[in-house]
C-alpha cells in the first residue's frame, strides 16, 4: 500500500475552500466538473461523484469523518476500476493570508490504476482549487479537460451508469456487506 500527499497555499478564506470541496448539486470544477451527490455529509453516508448529465457515477465512497471547515475524509473508489477502496482526506488550516490545503490519498495499491490516477489527479485538484478560490476559475488545462470529459462522456463504460450505483447509506448499499460484528465493508 502506498500514500500520496499534495499541499498548496490558497489566498482565500477557509469557508470558501470548504464550500468548494463539499458543495452538492452543482459542478465541482476542481473535481473534473463532477457533481457530488450524498445521502448527507455525515459519517456512514455515501457520496458519489456523478457526471453533470447525471448519467454516470465516476466515484463512490463513504464519509469517514467531517469537521467543518477543517477536515473531510472519505473512502474512494473509481467505478470504472476493480481496484479496492482507498481513503482520501482533505485538511484545511488557516495560515497568514489564506489557507493551507492538503490532500492525502492512502491505502493505494502500488502500481494500480487508482494509484496512478490519484497521484497525478491530486496535484491537479489542489491546483484547480487554488485557481477557483483565488481567481474564480480553474487553470486553463483543467478547463480544457472539462470540455474533453464532456465530449467523451458517451464512451464511459456501461458499469458506471447511475442505475448500477444506487445512492443509499453505505450500511444498506448493495455494494457493501455487514459482518456479524456490524462492520460495514465494501464488496
Amino acid at each position: 500500500m502506498t500514500k500520496a500527499i499534495s499541499t498548496i497555499f490558497i489566498a482565500g478564506t477557509i469557508d470558501a475552500v470548504w464550500r468548494e470541496i463539499t458543495k452538492t448539486g452543482e459542478a465541482q470544477k476542481c473535481f473534473f466538473n463532477n457533481v457530488m451527490h450524498t445521502t448527507g455529509l455525515r459519517p456512514g453516508a455515501m457520496i458519489q461523484m456523478r457526471s453533470i448529465s447525471n448519467k454516470y457515477v465516476g466515484v463512490v465512497g463513504e464519509v469517514l469523518a467531517i469537521e467543518p471547515p477543517y477536515l473531510f475524509s472519505h473512502t474512494f473508489k473509481f467505478t470504472s476500476y476493480d481496484d479496492p477502496y482507498c481513503k482520501v482526506t482533505y485538511k484545511l488550516r488557516e495560515v497568514a493570508g489564506g489557507v493551507e490545503f492538503t490532500l492525502i490519498s492512502e491505502d493505494l495499491v502500488e502500481g494500480s490504476k487508482t494509484a496512478k490516477q490519484m497521484t497525478s489527479g491530486g496535484e491537479m485538484i489542489v491546483k484547480s482549487l487554488k485557481g477557483i478560490v483565488e481567481n474564480g476559475k480553474p487553470p486553463f488545462g483543467m478547463r480544457v479537460l472539462h470540455r474533453i470529459i464532456g465530449v467523451t462522456e458517451r464512451f464511459t463504460p456501461e458499469r458506471c451508469k447511475v442505475e448500477h450505483w444506487p445512492l443509499v447509506d453505505v450500511a444498506s448499499s448493495p455494494q457493501h456487506t455487514r459482518s456479524e460484528s456490524g462492520e460495514v465493508t465494501p464488496r
Binding site: A4, S6, T7, I8, E123, F140, V144
Partner: peptide, 21 residues
C-alpha cells in the same frame, strides 16, 4: 516523508502557456 510536486507545477505554469505546454 512525501514529495509534494505542486510548487514545481506552479513554477511551470508561470512560464508555460497552452501552446508551449
Amino acid at each position: 516523508l512525501y514529495l509534494n510536486s505542486v510548487p514545481i507545477q506552479l513554477i511551470y505554469d508561470r512560464w508555460t502557456d497552452e501552446y508551449g505546454a
